[in-house]
Amino acid sequence: MGMLGQAIADGVLTGAVISLGAIGISFTMQIMRFANFAHAELLTWGGYLALVVVGFIGAGLPTAGLSFGLGLLAAAVLAAALTGALAWGVDRLVFQRLRRSGAHHLTLVFASFGIGLVMRHVIVLFWGHGSRFYTSELQIAVEVLPGVRVLPDQVFILAITIAIVVALHLWLRHSRTGIAMRATAESPALAQASGIEVERVIRATWFIGGGLAALSGIFVGLTPQLNPEIGGSLLLALFAAAIRGGIGSLPGAVVGGLLVGLAENVMVLVVSPGYKQSMSFGLLLLVLLLRPQGLFGERREGDR
């Protein structure tokens, strides 16, 4: 029981981090109609940008059992904004030009592969292949349930993730830009006819997706470490989460992320860890066979 409980706790924590990264992929795919394989590198960039800020201001005094303090929080906010700007900058430099020239969406997909490689190697160029840490503080796992131990940092990450997802959900429901974003996701032409400037919606999409990717990367870097591979190694999990949940759906990306995290962590109890990813993708195929639009996806009318 303890083992299963621990696997579920680990799965939820991994899943929360994957969810944050998957939201951007899901929204980009819905609004710009292409799979952005460079998105995973935004996680890495976010993690390293926070590392740069921490290098200047420090991670802050450890508080409330966490391994960090206000310094890292400030770094995370700054890194999220910078990563959003980076995502938008890449769009201006590459994707926007391709969109305007009427490129096929597969062209954008392949371009994103190339951009992803460049982004990863720039990280390696500056910081090398080695692992990095935000703090050298040691943390003691707390037994929250019999046999289930979690780090205070992990609890913090989960709480922040829940708060962000709830805030984003409310924003998409009620704010002017949130409604414009959902309108554009369904029909760019009708959105334009409503006076919505699609390029502005696209910019908002990059800032949100990039910002959340940065937080996801920072959380991976906190538990336990940062290296240039963190984004790349999560790439398939991020796509699995976005697709399983249903493209363009916020609850979909969150539930998709949790399912990926849980599947990976619970499966290792019964099958060899070598099959971890294949089990997760087996589950993805099963979902898609039963519900091709994903768990929360909506079939669009008049989508031609």
Partner: peptide, 15 residues
């Protein structure tokens, strides 16, 4: 916008 409510459609129109 079929995925939006009636009120949200009007709000989109009032962008």
């Amino acid at each position: 916008f079929t995925t939006l409510t009636v009120a949200e459609n009007l709000r989109a129109g009032a962008h």
